[in-house]
Write a protein that binds this DNA or RNA. Structure first.
Lengths: 343, 343
DNA sequence: AGGACAATTTAAAGCGCTTTAAGTCTTGGT
DNA sequence: ACCAAGACTTAAAGCGCTTTAAATTGTCCT
């Protein structure tokens, strides 16, 4: 009668079943059960079947914390993401499948306004992540290098000078180069670039623009407008252009957000896109695919980056590679409706 | 000399420091160190200082897996999210701060094309989450109820009939009702609704529309166009409307995505918004805030929902509440630029 | 039947921490 | 001086699992 109190709680009495419970049910040792459940060869077929049945009957589910502790391996890859970024979302999706294929699990830690990289990474480490996959880290190179001493670090999406750690990224300069090639192919010459502020990525893209322009003998037409990563910056830059007597024939923006700002301002001013001005973004955001924008842009191939990141981690963990490796993928131009021949 | 091999690995020699290492450094027992590090009263101030210093010097970081195992508590809230949803992103952000305030941590498990709710939840349980916060679960009520037997479940954002578990959501019907009130206040009468397909949420919003229309004596003007949650559906619906001799004066869409489809199709057909037709969405997506859309919509107040979800979890875990509770918040109309008096 | 060898099974020692009961020291009162 | 009452400190027993060495059982020859 005295369980009146405990009966108020569900779960009372039968708590989570343990390995021992399964073992008792079958009449074997916990060692055997553990072996069967992990698929380690050894147990006889008969034992195997009976253990599997008992486990299913009891609804047994392994306790990660215990097995991590005992095996000294978590088989966990820690991933730091900006949960607001659609691109990161896509990366995570592919990281999941890639990790699963090699027998690892993912633990995510997100960046928010009140949660910086330091905190996010500490969380990952507290879970005993064996390697850290950092999506678009902004910490300085030496901080990352120091971190790499605790667990292999794979930086995704950002160039790191003289990296002592693994890096997987796309060639941002090449991406912008492809855009310029594409526009020049159409016959454009007056191509302006709306910048993305400071930061490694912005630097690379800006350089890509400059280099490509010069390569086409358009060095004198180089024009970089200050901006950042927001729609507002794009609008601002476009309004600036509209004040000039003569519009350029094409505008390349740091990213899709900014490009959409440009698009909005131009359209609002009655400028036809791509009739009078072509506009190009970068990232192949969900945004750029909306039919009302249908923005020509550059895709970073999330899937391939994810695969390389996981591979890099596995090489570090299971194949003791120690030399840092940098994987630079070629981005892919995505032609949509905002580019055409100049008027 | 024989450590040539092991020197190839970083981390060799000094692995992650343990409680024991800190204890040895200070010359006390691991028990004392544990006490100090967790802030449990008992240890003297002198010991406290020395332990803290040693821990910092060694770069000690607690091993969650071990402490979870030992204390039989993970202090972890498992959160299932759709990583592609901007709204979920916002919720997660607030869940983080809310959880931190009450001494819990979050572990995220994401839904993807290849990862269903079942899998996501299992991951959460494997980490020993003490409670499960499911954002927009689609599993049937009885599945969720069964799950609630393993760990308290808090369903966020979705109504669950006769719920035997905690629910935190906004009143979707009320939200759409507010939209209709707003439009009627402007003098609109021909208000059509673009539906969001099947699903509990779509049902509620549709009902909210119908009820509000009747409340205003506009029962005869009720008109629901089939649709779903996509931009394409909105475009499709709008094109349908454009075929009629006479356009309605206002269109209410299931969500922002769909509303933007409507907006795009109308604009493209030369219809002025809000001059000729007003358009309203739902969700207060990032999208709706873009200056080129500036969509009037309804906000679900992520912060408040997050707080309630965490509170519900804590009440279950630390204050043994056992009666299920449903928290229904009132959504908030966000007035922007796509609504005005009818022409 | 006896023994070598392979096939299974299991006892037991942890993994790094928490927790509680049982110390050990101080104090201060008498 | 002596003892009770704090104030600290710590030994030791797990938490639920993995892993390895050792034990047990079974099989096949000669």
């Amino acid at each position: 009668m005295d369980d009146g109190g405990s009966m108020r709680h569900r779960n009372s009495g039968h708590k989570r079943p343990r390995l021992e419970d399964v073992a008792a049910q079958v009449g074997v040792s916990t060692a055997s059960v553990s072996l069967v459940l992990r698929g380690v060869p050894g147990p006889s077929e008969r034992t195997r079947q009976r253990v599997l049945k008992a486990a299913a009957d009891l609804g047994y589910q392994v306790d990660r914390t215990a097995s991590t502790l005992a095996s000294r391996r978590s088989r966990l890859l820690g991933v730091m993401v900006d949960i607001h970024s659609p691109f990161h979302a896509e990366l995570v999706e592919h990281l999941h499948t890639a990790a699963e294929e090699v027998g690892y699990d993912l633990v995510l830690s997100t960046l928010t306004r009140t949660r910086d990289e330091q905190t996010a990474v500490e969380t990952l480490l507290a879970f005993r992540s064996e390697a850290l996959i950092l999506l678009g880290p902004i910490s300085p190179a030496d901080t990352l290098a120091a971190l790499d001493n605790k667990a292999p670090v794979i930086a995704v999406g950002r160039r790191i000078a003289d990296a002592a750690l693994d890096v997987v990224r796309t060639a941002d300069d090449d991406g912008v180069g492809q855009i310029v090639d594409h526009l020049v192919g159409f016959g454009h010459r007056e191509i302006v670039y709306v910048d993305g502020g400071k930061g490694v990525i912005a630097t690379d893209r800006r350089r890509g623009y400059r280099t490509a322009m010069r390569r086409h003998g358009l060095g004198e037409h180089i024009r970089v407008l200050t901006g950042d990563q927001t729609e507002a910056a794009g609008e601002h830059a476009a309004r600036h252009l509209l004040r000039d007597p003569q519009l350029p024939t094409a505008v390349v923006a740091f990213n899709d957000q900014s490009a959409i700002g440009v698009l909005t301002a131009l359209t609002r001013a009655g400028v036809a896109v791509p009739g009078q001005v072509s506009v190009v973004g970068y990232d192949d955001d969900t945004l750029s695919r909306l039919s009302c924008f249908n923005l020509t842009t550059v895709s970073q191939n999330a899937q391939e980056q994810a695969r390389h990141a996981v591979t890099a981690a596995v090489e570090r963990l299971d194949q003791d590679r120690t030399e840092p490796r940098e994987v630079v993928l070629t981005p892919r131009l995505v032609l949509r409706g905002t580019t055409a021949e100049p008027a």
